[in-house]
Amino acid sequence: MASKQFDIKTYTGFKGITLLCLVILYAPLVVVTIYSFNASQSLTNWEGVSLRWYADVFTGPESAKFKTAAKNSFVIAIIAATTATTIATLAATGMVRGGKFRFRTVSFGLISLPLMVPEIVLAVATLIFFNSIGFERGLLTILLAHIAFCIPFAYLPISARMQGIEDSYEQAALDLYATKRQAFTKILLPLMMPGIISGFLLAFIVSLDDFIITNFVKGAGVETLPTAIFGSVKQGIKPNIMAISTMLLSVSIIMVTISYFVSKSDNTK
């Protein structure tokens, strides 16, 4: 015990709390995943493993609603994440490779604005904006709103990556008579790929997951997966919701894992 007293970095109980923290974080997700395989009609009783609720999602009474919602969600997420990543890549180049300029701080503030404004406030503001210019609510309003709040999520990993890449590669290319455009597309962009992919995936997940803003700007009858799930949950949690949740949370976890390993990979060497 005496030696432990002098190990100044270790505090009794901290490890326990960390493990407790992981249990709290994962328990709800694990429990829902397990119960999504429950054969029982009721939520409480366990009656053995079955895929019936997964089948119910695809063929059950609510399947048409979920199919349309899933299609909307994925189409919006792909377009919003692609657009936001393109805008963010250009902006990061301007910010990180554009030298010092007067509007740098303002530009950074503008880019991170969607992170600072509370989500519900952004939702209200966007709804009011579309209403004031007479823009009819529907899929397009959802898409535009998603592009805006995806930008900072794509921007942060991209600019972090660019700050880690020395400009000597581009300078070498320029010295060898490459144009600026060539230095950008042939040197910087390939080196940036891990950051860009990581940014794209994060933007994709954030778009796929958004409920609050979508709920405000969607037109009547237009649903994405989260709003469809919320509508169902309001009438009580049903087993098919757990199956659909398990599928959606798997998509998120797979994408984050890919993003993690891609952003760690180092292709500058």
Binding site: T93, S107, I111, L113, K180
Partner: peptide, 23 residues
């Protein structure tokens, strides 16, 4: 901001314009 360089200084406005306009 530590690793900022000015390689694309001339194009800066055009690079940032889409983000400014969108946001």
């Amino acid at each position: 901001g530590s690793a900022t360089t000015d390689t694309y200084k001339e194009a800066r406005t055009w690079l940032l314009l889409p983000a400014w306009v969108t946001l």
